[in-house]
Design a protein around this nucleic acid. Structure first.
Lengths: 145, 145
DNA sequence: GTTGAAAAGTGAACTCG
DNA sequence: CGAGTTCACTTTTCAAC
């Protein structure tokens, strides 16, 4: 992972469908040289995949919340992950410092749908209670590294 | 945005560099038909762009926090966005329900770097105080809608 | 980095409801 | 007419050098 790799990744972050020749022009490399580096970055796991950015409003999933999960007693991160993965509305989750066991990012079509997702999360055997903040407006989204 | 579009978007979410022919095979369409639909989705803004998923650990930005921002008096979302956009470590931000004015997602190389970013956020003229939780481990990341 | 064969992208003309 | 298809033609990929 040298500086050239970083510049190639920078191009791909902006447009993952750029041709190798286009990237090569920007970083002063031939198309095959770029391809070899990209292949290596994919093989090594540095590049985990190529994806598309969708306007969430179009999919109709406009209601967003961050939910702090408090579990009964202690719970392993692995168990927590398995519990939360079962709920498709959960788009992100992490264990955090402080008294909460996890912070969960939930995306739903509307408030009604969000409530249903929260109920499903709460119904998991090891969840004691939850504390939610609802997103009013998204100010910044630079989530793709 | 019909069911065919949704299936095409599904393919692109999994692999944004899939060829139109590959996508076409999966959704039972010819390559040019897929291309026309993808072009339309891009033109209409449904597809906001193509990007690459990078292993954050490789870039060395492994320290993550969620920070609640409390401002002095009232502040417009626009001003808040401008303040936060000036801090590159801020990867996401939204206004939220409850007493905090905003919830900010911060990514930094280490705790020291995170602290510097928090200081920069606090130094913005309209920030009263902040409340942070540090991410211990990421359980789920399905952030790319 | 260069070259060349194979594959994919792309626009036009055409066909079907 | 909007949406899909086939077909020619250009560009890109990708493996060998």
């Amino acid at each position: 992972m040298d500086d050239l790799d970083r510049r190639i990744v920078g191009c791909l972050l902006r447009n993952a469908r750029a041709t190798f020749a286009e990237i090569g022009e920007e970083v002063s490399l031939s198309a095959p040289a770029v391809k070899r580096r990209v292949d290596r970055l994919v093989a090594s796991g540095t590049i985990r995949g190529f994806t598309v950015l969708i306007d969430p409003a179009v999919l109709g999933w406009q209601t967003e919340a961050y939910v702090e999960i408090y579990c009964k007693g202690t719970v392993s991160p692995g168990d927590l992950r398995r519990s939360l993965e079962a709920v498709p509305e959960v788009v992100g989750a992490c264990t955090v410092s402080g008294s909460a066991d996890a912070l969960v990012h939930v995306l739903a079509s509307d408030v009604r749908h969000l409530e249903q997702a929260l109920e499903r999360i709460r119904d998991e055997h090891n969840v004691d209670h939850t504390e939610s903040v609802i997103v009013l407006s998204r100010l910044i989204d630079r989530s793709r590294t």
